[in-house]
Design a protein around this nucleic acid. Sequence first.
DNA 1: TTGCTCCTCACGTCACGTGAGGTGGC
DNA 2: TTGCTCCTCACGTCACGTGAGGTGGC
Lengths: 245, 245
Amino acid sequence: VVWSPRRLAELAGTSRRTVRHYHELGLLPEPARRANGYQRYGVEHLVRLVRIRRLTRLGLTLPQIAALGDTERLPAEVARDLDAEITRTIAQLHEARAELAEMVEHAAPLDLPAHVARRVDGLPGAERALVVVLSRLLGRGPLDAYLDLLPPYRAHPAVLAFDTLSTEADDPTRTAVARGITEHLHHLATVRPAQLELVDTGLRRDGPQRRAVHEAIGDLYNPAQLDVLTRTLHLNNRPSPAFRR
Amino acid sequence: VVWSPRRLAELAGTSRRTVRHYHELGLLPEPARRANGYQRYGVEHLVRLVRIRRLTRLGLTLPQIAALGDTERLPAEVARDLDAEITRTIAQLHEARAELAEMVEHAAPLDLPAHVARRVDGLPGAERALVVVLSRLLGRGPLDAYLDLLPPYRAHPAVLAFDTLSTEADDPTRTAVARGITEHLHHLATVRPAQLELVDTGLRRDGPQRRAVHEAIGDLYNPAQLDVLTRTLHLNNRPSPAFRR
DNA sequence: TTGCTCCTCACGTCACGTGAGGTGGC
DNA sequence: TTGCTCCTCACGTCACGTGAGGTGGC
């Protein structure tokens, strides 16, 4: 009588391999064998196996289950830890689902949160890449402030000139672009002082975040553009840090 | 300029090993190297890495991400599958947390759901093991019916005699126990016909579940007890299937 | 010279899945 | 004899973690 490995696994709602795995870890005793070497499992094995499966469903690892041994009740600390872990995982999954829904609803791209992506549509590649970097470096508040500043900043023709500036641009051209941007930034500083301030504190002065932004800018723009940014810095007494070099 | 492996990983909120792993899978292009062989990552790598990390958080596997390649938007089918998967996982976690809470509240044992365990407290080992087996074989309704029947069934002195029946019990003793149980079952059949019926249909006539129960009983009781069960079967014209052999 | 970072193997972890190659019972 | 089940290795999967042993730059 009693059960073959396959039947035992079936009755417990699992696989033969899982049963073998539990043998290997010492979680489940090896059953007696018939003369031909076939394993014969009894009720005690099924009871044990059902218990292990219940515990794995609760989120215990197999080593944790081994540590429990024949314990009758779940230690309070283990239960608390499991509950905290489950709660955390559920929260993460809810976030993931919310993001997924947002992405589907707005047909959002894959590299940015949907609410950010909506606000950078049509941006040139380098600017967009910079936003991805900033989305890692800035908190929600400063990032929003930066995104608020972006449209008025980019409305100025000097910015378009900057975007398309060739590496061989001559000195007068560079000067003109730098002056245009500087004046525009001055204007923005009077119109949107709060946002500039937020971005500035978001990238704490000379902190690692600011350094990373500088490094990113160094990678994204050509030498002529970087030269213009340096000139802008010197011309501008209240530069926006994200455009500093 | 730009970034070392450690710095890249930091900026993306992950580990150097993860970055290496993505190289190995071809998810992330290998960066240029400096003269000494050191890897130098640029903004393009960070952007790519951030994208990969976002997608893993949404639940995509790395092969799935590889299959997406440079796709701009999430295919609708992928999004649907992910959402279904997340929803299912959340449901399972809620169940697990509910069970955990129930176990803590009632200081329940580990081998049975708390609501079942409460109702089998004090049962002898073999009976308890049988309940574990039945909890796998019966649906909620039939299992509840069985648990309903258990206290009145066990209230009879013949059942206690059965529990403690020695292997060497003589024929008159066996007959007496079998008769006692039979009469008691007759009584139960008139008092609780509905429950007996439920358990009976729960273990569909001659289905694999019923066979498993018979096999479990064969393993749990000694020869004398099994003999008594057989006699009970012959005496009883309306036996409860769980006690059949 | 010391300490820190970088490099490349390569084995380990977690909980199993999946054959590979062979035997036993009807 | 055929088909089905059982057996024991043992490598594969997933997404990395964790040293091991050695080199480079200040």
